[in-house]
Nucleic acid binder design. Structure first.
Lengths: 161, 161
DNA sequence: CCGTACTTGTTGAGCACTCAAGCACTCGAC
DNA sequence: GTCGAGTGCTTGAGTGCTCAACAAGTACGG
């Protein structure tokens, strides 16, 4: 790898600001959700996905694997999370009728209620931490920057030849 | 609070991209450091701070509290981290001569070596995950965006009256 | 001085995550 | 069929974090 370069001044500045930002934002959101809704931020994301699945036509369930892939979580992480959330009554597991290895997950009534309860405070926290600080232009820029970074993680194009 | 607004479409897009980005970047860096240097990302940051302190004139040590404030870590988090890092031989605690409550922390020779070992791979990972995906302009924008967000966390101005 | 409030740092329980291992099932070549 | 490779999910140990409680020291008004 021809990558022995250090970060230059601009990169250094941006990088330190980025690290601090993600730490502060993450902590603020996690703390707010934990305090007001007794759930970590990651569980909120899971509930959102399951709630979206519920509103789509069909079973309203997701396979563990599909949910994990959608959230970019490891299987193990999701298993632990779903086990805990099942204990809180927010989700339930069901056997998959077509593949006995698979497990389907669905959000429960309680889960829907918990999400509805948590959402306003959470959105307010996101707003106050992030969007209230940015211009509309910066929001667009942020979206583009993040999209570019995410694209870098996508499976590399198959090499020619 | 007059903040009952949901996120609009642009914000929604930017927010989801942001969440995915921070998760992917954080995981990638943590994994790389854990694999190649047997340390979590947070410990790397601590070593960097202590190494900078070492290179400045004076004692080359930092008080626990000052280190925690600089990194925006809780005291407890830092205590746990330093205890663990002391076990690895990377840092050492010393009593503070002027305040018997305080503890000073210094990086050890081993710590300096571990940091020097870890740095190139870490920087390469940061580059490949983030800066290789961005234009110079986007790096500047990212810095500005993050600075704005961080500023929002600073203690609010004392209200008039 | 003395007592009270504040600061500094630690502790331990609880929790979410990682990693490696393992079990159960499905698929596909033969 | 059946056997090996691959898939889906779980388990449990280990680890780094939070939070609340606490000990020990300092600062300061009376």
């Amino acid at each position: 790898m021809a990558r022995r370069r250090w970060l230059d001044k601009d990169e250094q500045t941006a990088w330190r600001a980025y690290l601090l930002t993600t730490q502060l934002v993450d902590e603020a959101l996690d703390r707010q959700l934990q305090r007001d809704a007794q759930m970590p931020h990651a569980y909120y994301g899971i509930l959102v996905r399951l709630d979206e699945a519920r509103q789509r036509p069909g079973e309203g369930t997701l396979r563990m694997t599909d949910l994990a892939r959608g959230l970019r979580y490891s299987q193990s992480r999701l298993t632990h999370a779903i086990t805990s959330m099942e204990g809180s009554g927010w989700v339930e597991r069901r056997d998959c009728p077509t593949d006995r290895r698979s497990q389907l997950v669905a959000i429960t009534e309680q889960g829907v209620a918990a999400l509805a309860d948590a959402a306003p405070g959470h959105v307010a926290a996101v707003r106050s931490a992030v969007f209230d600080q940015l211009t509309a232009e910066q929001v667009t820029q942020l979206g583009e920057i993040c999209t570019a970074i995410v694209r870098g993680f996508e499976p590399p194009v198959t090499p020619p030849g």
